[in-house]
Structures are given as structure tokens and as C-alpha cells.
Design a protein around this nucleic acid. Sequence first.
DNA 1: GCTTGACTTAGAGTTGGCTCTAAGTTGTAA
DNA 2: TTACAACTTAGAGCCAACTCTAAGTCAAGC
Lengths: 122, 122
Amino acid sequence: MNIQKFSKVTNVSSYTIRYYEKIGLLKNISRNSSGHRWFTEKDVIWIEFIKRLKDTGMPLDNIKKYADLRDEGASTSELRMKILQQHAVTLEEKISEEQFHLKKLKEKIEHYSEFIELELNA
Amino acid sequence: MNIQKFSKVTNVSSYTIRYYEKIGLLKNISRNSSGHRWFTEKDVIWIEFIKRLKDTGMPLDNIKKYADLRDEGASTSELRMKILQQHAVTLEEKISEEQFHLKKLKEKIEHYSEFIELELNA
DNA sequence: GCTTGACTTAGAGTTGGCTCTAAGTTGTAA
DNA sequence: TTACAACTTAGAGCCAACTCTAAGTCAAGC
């Protein structure tokens, strides 16, 4: 598929797609006879994974390190697994921190609603 | 307390503290006789709340809106409560999205470990 | 009374992650 | 055979959120 279709399918702007290729997150993207990028299903799967890492707070330069290892082949799979394991731990910590924040927010909302009750009855 | 102490207590750099005052997140910070900022326990509580909103993904200009309402007094408390309620909903959605991402990450890690097992037995 | 160090300000610089522009090429359709 | 739309590139611009610099003020200790 061309960049426009790939952009629609992945919900990533064509600017961002080219940018990701430029910084080395997308590698070995094939070209058609006109020199235009030609994306495959594998590219879709890969960019969806990039989005998952990004959406869980991994900075692009760390994702780049993972991408570089992936490009080196199967010999790096144990190392890549370790990176993901570490990231999963970080993410679990982040989630439980957010759950704590949520609890505190709800307590504050409760205080507000009690205060507003009091105001109405004053 | 002076800015240095406040920075240590809140774990926010003095640059950031002055920046937050400049953009209107911190208001009515008092000054000592030398014209230096003098922070109180109330300022600590307030900046901790700013951090909570920020750490749960609220942009600073939204936090500013909340700060402006807070400065207007009790008449805006219902509106502020609604902002927090909306933010809590957004946060709940974010958390469940992250939990989904985490599940997918763990599946991928599982695939890696199966692959590595196979390699060892090859 | 002078040095030192922590503060003050306005405004410039940095970082991460895009987002856009300008100039050029290519394939298709009128 | 030229007009057009969609692509290409390098590099500039933008936005959020800081982070730092330069120049100046002030209180305390020597």
C-alpha cells in the first residue's frame, strides 16, 4: 500500500511516518518503480507495536534501540525480551501510581460534593 | 520557607517553580522583607495537587484554568468539581487502555521466551 | 566596607515529537 | 503534451514544558 493508505490504516500522519523512517524506527521500507514507499502488512504490525511502546511512555530513542536490535536478527531476541520485561515492570508501576492518583482525585471530588451540599443548606 | 527549601520539599526545580508562577499556576506567593519568595504549607499542598493533575496527563493550560477558578473563590467550586470529574473519567479510560497494552506486552514477552526455549533445544 | 552566595528578573535556549514548506519528480487522464 | 495529484527530499518551524543565562539586588560574615 502507498503512504496515504498506510497512514489511514495505522492512524499515523504521513509526516510522522516519514519522520519515523528518518530517525530509524521504520527500516527497510520497500519502494515501487516510481521510488514511492510501498508498505506491507508487516509494516502495519510493526508500527502498531511502536505505537504501543510509545503510548505506554517509552521515549522514541528507546524504541529506536529496540528497532536496531530487531534489525540485527534473532541473536538479539533475548536482549529484546529483557527490554520488554523491564518496560512491563515500569508500566505496572505507572499504572498503580495512576490508580493512586485516581483514588485521591475521587476523594477530592467527594470533598467538593460535601462542600456544595453544605452551601445549599446554609 | 525559601525557594530552595520549597524545591526540596516538593521535588520541583526552582526554575520550574518560578515558571509555574509566571504562567499563573502558583498565585499570590508571599515575599519576605528582601523581596524573596516565601512559601507556606498551603503552597506545598497546592503544588502537590498540580503535580497530581500533571502526572495524570492534564496539560498545564488546563491546570491553569482550574487555578484561575480556584482563585475566584467558592462560587466556582461546582465548576471545579465538574472539571475533576471529567478528568477522573479520562484517567480511568487511560488506565484501562494501559492495562490492555500491558497484557499485550506480556503476551509478546511470552512469545519471546517460547522462541528462546526452541532455540536452545535446536 | 567588601566579598560571597542565594535570591531576583526578562528573556534566550533546549528537548522531544512532530508538522509543515519548498522545490522537484512521476504516472495518469483530457 | 500538458495539466494534475501524489509522491519525493532536506530542512525549517512549531508547541509544550521546562532549563538556563545574564545582569542585578541584598543580607551576613570577615
